[in-house]
């Protein structure tokens, strides 16, 4: 389990993470979402022990991870830009990683080489961006980590490889109890992979929880009337957002789906439909209510 307590990180005068407190449970896929510079990469670097916290602490399995090889050996961190030793090939990098990580598993490595078919003996510098990311993934996953941290994990991967990566991550979580933390500025990418999501903006957590609980009891209702009633009619519902286009009314309503539809139908609409909102829409509605310019956060 990863626990951050009043975690603060500053870069000179800029506060990258501002007094963050959060818990990431074991055995889940956890998404960190936020715009560029929001602090999600900084949080990953703090978890992986690359950065030192300026204030507060971040503990992995109850221990501070900075300068702690025992904890760091269980964490594989995949940065946003893959790095390999100059002139090295994948095989040499695998040797380096196997000498560093006690749990490096050549079986996993060889298996992943069949999934991501890369030439082991070709110089990594000659690889394309996507191939380099695949190589970095192979190395990170071969360390058999308990915690896999990925910054902009899907960058540079084609659609097929994205799906393959998602499957590998979910397999790791299900079969080995691995915890995967994926940072991305694109919520849509994380929607189908993550169990929980945390939205970070300007170094602060503005929303955090499981996707189910976030999506929870929010419903998107589209309803058509022959004569659109006054909005005050809906006062008994928790309407988060209402938009009218001619005789068509779009409502975002919080509450029990059956109760909401029962009320809507009692108004004798010409047409009424309840739609499951996307995760992005959930965030947009939730956050706009509390005054955030969500389009900038999730863009």
């Amino acid at each position: 389990m990863i626990i951050a307590k009043a975690l603060t990180k500053k870069f000179d005068d800029k506060i990258a993470l501002d007094n963050i407190t959060m818990t990431i449970p074991d055995g889940c896929v956890y998404g960190l979402v936020g715009s560029n510079g929001s602090g999600k990469s900084t949080l990953l670097r703090l978890i992986s022990g690359v950065y030192m916290a300026d204030d507060g602490e971040i503990c992995v399995d109850g221990e501070n991870c900075f300068n702690n090889p025992a904890i760091k050996s269980q964490i594989a961190f995949l940065g946003d830009t893959p790095y390999f030793l100059p002139q090295s090939d994948l095989k040499e990098m695998a040797q380096l990683y196997s000498s560093m990580y006690p749990d490096f598993d050549y079986e996993i490595y060889n298996h992943l080489l069949t999934v991501f078919p890369l030439n082991q003996k070709a110089r990594l510098s000659t690889f394309s961006k996507g191939m380099q990311r695949q190589a970095a993934l192979i190395l990170a996953l071969s360390t058999n980590p308990r915690y896999l941290l990925m910054d902009e994990a899907f960058d540079g991967l084609d659609v097929v490889m994205r799906r393959v990566l998602a499957n590998i991550v979910m397999d790791g979580v299900q079969q080995r109890g691995m915890t995967a933390i994926i940072a991305s500025h694109n919520l849509r990418e994380l929607e189908n992979v993550c169990d929980s999501v945390c939205v970070i903006h300007n170094g602060k957590i503005i929303s955090n929880g499981s996707i189910e609980s976030l999506r929870g009891n929010m419903h998107k209702i589209q309803v058509a009337f022959s004569e659109v009633p006054e909005m005050s009619v809906f006062d008994s519902l928790y309407v988060m957002k209402a938009e009218r286009t001619g005789s068509l009314l779009s409502l975002v309503v919080k509450g029990n789906e059956d109760e909401i539809m029962q009320f809507i139908n009692s108004l004798n609409p010409l047409y009424a439909e309840c739609i499951e909102p996307t995760l992005e829409e959930v965030f947009v509605y939730e956050l706009e209510v509390v005054g955030y310019d969500v389009k900038n956060i999730l863009s």
Partner: peptide, 19 residues
């Protein structure tokens, strides 16, 4: 002196002194 390499080396399970 480079973020990408710094990330990799500092994420290795070594103390700073060992590194």
């Amino acid at each position: 002196y480079k973020k990408s390499s710094s990330d990799v080396f500092h994420a290795f399970p070594l103390t700073r002194c060992e590194l």
